[in-house]
Nucleic acid binder design. Structure first.
Lengths: 114, 114
DNA sequence: AATACTTATCGCAATATTGATATAATAGTT
DNA sequence: AACTATTATATCAATATTGCGATAAGTATT
């Protein structure tokens, strides 16, 4: 089961690097989304059995663009590009802004060990 | 219960206008996402009890920018902007590319009336 | 109706993303 | 090793988004 893009474990690394620092939170959340989207595109493409070049042609762009989209460090993700990719791969873009529950870890009792 | 942005029922209207035409599909899906995101931002802001000006200041921009984001016709949504808004409103950006099941409505039996 | 508050819209400069080509690097095959 | 296919990176012009001020328009309150 190899679903992760082999060159990047960005999510996990990031998650462990940052605590509750309000200062870095902004950049962190941003980076988290970027890494996630890059992974989404990579997964969708590989599951469809397509090369970057093949996908690029389907949405009317070039291979380097797709490679850039799948780069975990890429910060320029747009919803229009995500839509184009999704449609070519017969997928639907689902987006939501889910409320963050104020503090589950601040409770005085230890969190249940699943 | 008034959660919809009063000036726009874009989603419903769009849904009824388009059938299976592969030609228009591209623009349609794009527009659908745009309308949805605009609504997400509007909902999140109003539920937080903030004015456009107030939210704008929280994320370091101006009121006209927020108004533009909430415009159903706006096509320039970026994930970075969505992240900024989400964070200011204590929300998390959730994104997914869900596979579209080929044809549930093409079945020879009528769809169950819920 | 005047005031205060909120939102919509326009225009334009600043900035960022995209498109595209070329090239390097990696992997797999024969 | 040579060949092929795939992916990563760099650069730059073209395009699109953002920032921002000004202003119009809509709501509510007094």
């Amino acid at each position: 089961m190899m679903s992760k893009k082999p060159t990047s474990d960005g999510m996990e690394i990031l998650d462990r690097m940052i605590g509750d620092d309000t200062e870095v939170r902004e950049m962190y959340e941003q980076a988290k989304v970027n890494v996630h989207v890059a992974q989404l595109i990579y997964d969708a493409r590989t599951e469809a059995g397509l090369s970057q070049t093949a996908l690029a042609r389907m949405i009317g762009t070039t291979q380097s663009v797709i490679s850039r989209l799948e780069d975990a460090d890429y910060e320029g993700h747009s919803l229009s590009m995500l839509s184009r990719v999704a449609q070519a791969l017969d997928r639907e873009v689902k987006i939501d802004l889910v409320p963050i529950v104020p503090s589950l870890e601040d409770a005085s009792f230890p969190s249940p060990s699943v």
